[in-house]
Amino acid sequence: MTAGSVDRPPILVLGLGNQLLGDDGAGLRLLELLEAGQGRAANVESLGGGTPAVEFIDGGTQGLALLGTIENRQGLLILDAVGSGSAGEVHSLDARDLAALRARRASTAHEGNALELLEAATLLGVAPARTVVVGITPAMLKTGIGLSPPVEAALPEALRQAGLALQSLISSLTA
């Protein structure tokens, strides 16, 4: 079976993180909000044949096991906590930013990392054609469910940027 079977939506929105660790769950909360708000609208514009354009998946903290989920998508939007900047800061990272991040990174502490997932996909030649990351800088990464006030306050802006990113992925699909 080849990757990226034809019946899969060409765009994937992948939420990453652990909602048992406070703000590490920011990406999953964004996923929920984006799917509830834009998901339906986005999928109205489904491609011919009834296959929806966008799939929403909660990837948790899975690492390489997500390779099959992202492979050969035309567009990938990752929603995650982003480990730089000040608490509650919203980030939108495109391909160039991601390349810069990779070059700066000396090593990683764990395998369950989105950068490594993307690198593995690149190495195998199955990376999505376009990848965008939208995320929020966490304030609190402690055991517990729920987001901190600065991250909670950043949700509307993050949601707006995630929505724009998704629209852009969809329009490059039809272009």
Binding site: N18, D80, A81, G83, R105, H110, N113, L115, P138
Partner: peptide, 15 residues
């Protein structure tokens, strides 16, 4: 298994 999972370089101390 802390499974903390922050995207990017700064959340991870260097080895």
């Amino acid at each position: 298994a802390c499974a903390s999972h922050v995207f990017g370089p700064d959340g991870e101390s260097l080895a």
